[in-house]
Amino acid sequence: MCIIIHIRRCIIMQTNIVIDDKLIEEAMKITGIKTKEEIVNIALLLSKCCLFPCLD
């Protein structure tokens, strides 16, 4: 019997990125999300799930 265990490591790192403020504001209004950080994190997760579903 083969048992596969997935261990996810959460690495948090701070970075500076240039983002269109109008786009961020629009996303915050539409979603109700209150922080830029959370908007970026959600966008990254969505792009990973939608664009690269076989990588999970």
Rank of each mutant, 00 (worst) to 15 (best):
M13W: 01
I24G: 01
L51D: 15
I12C: 04
V18D: 06
M28G: 02
D20V: 03
F52Q: 14
K29P: 01
L23W: 05
I12K: 08
I42C: 09
I7M: 07
I42G: 00
E25N: 08
R9P: 05
C2I: 14
L45G: 11
I42K: 06
K48T: 13
I33G: 03
L55G: 04
D21Y: 00
T35D: 03
C54Y: 14
E26A: 07
E37H: 07
R8E: 11
L44N: 10
C54D: 15
C49N: 14
S47Q: 12
E26W: 07
R8L: 10
I30H: 01
L44I: 13
C49R: 11
C49P: 00
C50K: 10
C54H: 15
I24W: 04
E37L: 04
M28A: 05
I12G: 05
K34E: 07
M13N: 07
R8A: 09
P53T: 06
N16I: 11
C54L: 15
L23G: 08
E25V: 03
S47I: 13
V18R: 06
T35I: 10
C10Q: 09
R8P: 00
L55P: 03
I33S: 03
M1L: 12
C10K: 10
L44F: 06
T35C: 04
I33A: 01
L45K: 14
L45D: 12
K48S: 14
C50N: 13
R9A: 11
M13K: 07
K29S: 02
E25I: 02
T31F: 02
D20L: 07
D56R: 12
H6A: 12
M13V: 13
T15D: 11
K29Q: 08
C54P: 03
R8V: 10
G32L: 04
N16L: 09
K22P: 00
K29G: 00
K34A: 09
S47T: 13
I19W: 00
G32F: 04
I4A: 06
L46V: 09
L44A: 14
I17K: 06
I12Q: 07
A43M: 05
L51E: 15
E26C: 03
D20R: 09
E38L: 11
K34R: 12
Q14S: 12
I5Y: 07
E25W: 03
D56N: 15
R8W: 02
E26N: 08
I39W: 00
M1I: 12
C54G: 13
L51Y: 05
C49V: 13
L51C: 13
T31E: 01
C10D: 09
T35F: 04
I3A: 08
G32Q: 02
N16G: 08
I4T: 12
M13L: 12
M1F: 09
C49K: 11
I5M: 09
D56W: 06
M13P: 01
I11P: 01
N41W: 02
L46F: 05
I12A: 11
D20G: 06
I17L: 11
C54T: 15
D56I: 11
S47G: 10
K29Y: 01
D56Q: 15
N41D: 15
V18H: 02
K48F: 08
